[in-house]
């Protein structure tokens, strides 16, 4: 890898459109402004989503959220609630949403090629009736993110087909990565046994709620 910064050529927006062509009418028509029964069923079976936010200056962030399938609750056909579980406490998403409430969600169902995209606006809540629905192993979520749905649509499966994301053989890719402890020791220049970091991480992973 070179250390000089690379800057590939920029393509202006009209040229991007010219190269991609126009979307088919069907593609636009399938965008709904609400969670219908099919999208509800998708969310009820999805254990994982990526949550995209940006701050007022447009600095963007994307973070993973996951739990048992259906962990995101459909409060009504225009409103979702995502539990906030203990994480790294950086709270990038909440910090961004305080400045800019726009949010993009991408839901996955393991084994399914199509994904569900939901865009809208979001804010944090501590409404007891919402948090009660997220209780797990006797523990409540401290906060939930309410998403007011503006757009919802299925995204076609090409990216997941090309990526072979759900192909069990793809799991061998994980063995090509060094351990988290080894990466941390190298990146932070630490003089400790990587196994100590991994042990600490595993202890943390035991308390998921």
């Amino acid at each position: 890898m070179t250390h000089a910064r690379t800057r590939p050529r920029w393509v202006p927006p009209d040229e991007v459109r010219a190269r991609l062509g126009e979307p088919e009418a069907m593609t636009e028509a399938k965008i709904l402004d609400r969670i219908d029964e099919h999208f509800h069923r998708f969310i009820a079976h999805s254990p994982f989503l990526a949550l995209a936010t940006a701050d007022a200056a447009g600095r963007a962030d994307c973070s993973p959220r996951g739990d048992y399938p259906g962990f995101v609750k459909v409060l009504d056909e225009h409103t979702l609630a995502i539990p906030d579980r203990p994480g790294n406490k950086i709270a990038d998403s909440f910090r961004n949403l305080a400045e800019n409430d726009g949010v993009g969600l991408l839901f996955f169902i393991p084994g399914l090629r199509e994904t569900l995209r939901v865009n809208g606006r979001a804010y944090p809540t501590d409404e007891p009736d919402v948090l009660a629905r997220m209780q797990i192993e006797g523990k409540n979520a401290e906060l939930a993110l309410v998403v007011e749905v503006a757009e919802a649509y299925f995204h076609c499966g090409r990216a997941l087909i090309r990526s072979r994301l759900w192909d069990p053989a793809s799991q061998s890719l994980a063995t090509e990565m060094p351990s988290t402890g080894e990466v941390a020791v190298a990146q932070l220049g630490l003089d400790i046994d990587p196994k100590l970091i991994e042990h600490g991480l595993e202890l943390g992973y035991r308390n998921l709620y």
């Binding site: 509800h40 069923r41 009820a44 259906g70 009660a132 629905r133 797990i136």
Partner: peptide, 13 residues
Amino acid sequence: PLSRGGSEYVHLF
């Protein structure tokens, strides 16, 4: 009404 995902699943899915 405050289903955590059990009774709602049975009823809807």
